[in-house]
Amino acid sequence: MRRKSLQLYTDHPELEFAVPGHRACQGCAEILALRLALKVFGKDTILAMATGCMEIISTPLPLTDWTLPWIHVAFENAAAVASGIEGALRILMDKNKIPRKDINVVAVAGDGGTSDIGLQALSGALERGTNFTYICLDNEAYMNTGIQRSSSTPYGAMTTTSPPGRKSIGQSTWKKNMPKIAVAHNIPYVATACPSYPFDLFSKVKKAKMTKGPSYLHILSVCPTGWRIPTDLAIRYGKLAVKAGVFPLYEVENGEWRLTYSPEPLTPVKDYFKGQGRFRHLTDEVVAEIQGRVNKEWEELKGMCVK
């Protein structure tokens, strides 16, 4: 039984910290990713959340979806807010104003809140060695505001601000490699994950939780609304992304790279694109170009990973 095996990662798999009643779209894998991650973090956790889908679906005053201490300040500053919380806990414990115990400080933001507007605050918090976990829930565009492109939107994808047209193929830039940017800060733990592989995700969340110092989790969060796929296929498309090598599952522990799941032989990118409205306009030439890039990046990643 799955729930038994979940007990490897959490004492209380039945506890929900993102309770039913939130207003996430049908089939949202982003709230799912968070729901699963929070089970591992457990009740001694404080969440600092950026403006975005997860914030807006959860806290319309006077209601809140969270049963953990939770704060939202603005869009671009979740990492800085988390730094302040971590500092407060540290000094209040040092001064014996609050009992000493391990409290997980977790910052959560979307891909825009991480790789675009929040990148500076995140870099600062990682560089300072803040004892926290930063989770980027990557649904590959600004979904909350209506599917605008971010620097995390994949090449070729149609969004409302990267529309394909006579002079455009859609998104004209390649997805920013956020995990690699996090790794460049020489922090103890960086990992990619996807809720389609929940046990891989649990294990990485647990490692992030146990890390002293900054840890960074980049979680692919399939968005049926923005990717224009049926609501029941979020788990499927997460798996397809991993199997095509588009979103590899790996971790970097103290500078050592390791694939946590090898999907080789990779399935063709076109199998992953098929059925996604955001890629429907792509020509065979563009798909072939993307396939070439995916193959190249996959080989580079394998080269960095220990066997």
């Binding site: 309770v19 039913p20 009643g21 939130h22 207003r23 959860s58 806290t59 005053l61 006077p62 209601l63 809140t64 979806d65 969270w66 049963t67 953990l68």
Partner: peptide, 15 residues
């Protein structure tokens, strides 16, 4: 500060 003390009360909203 519009703090919400009744945690998890979003469950009052039926989806």
């Amino acid at each position: 500060g519009c703090v919400i003390e009744e945690i998890g009360n979003a469950s009052e909203y039926k989806t």
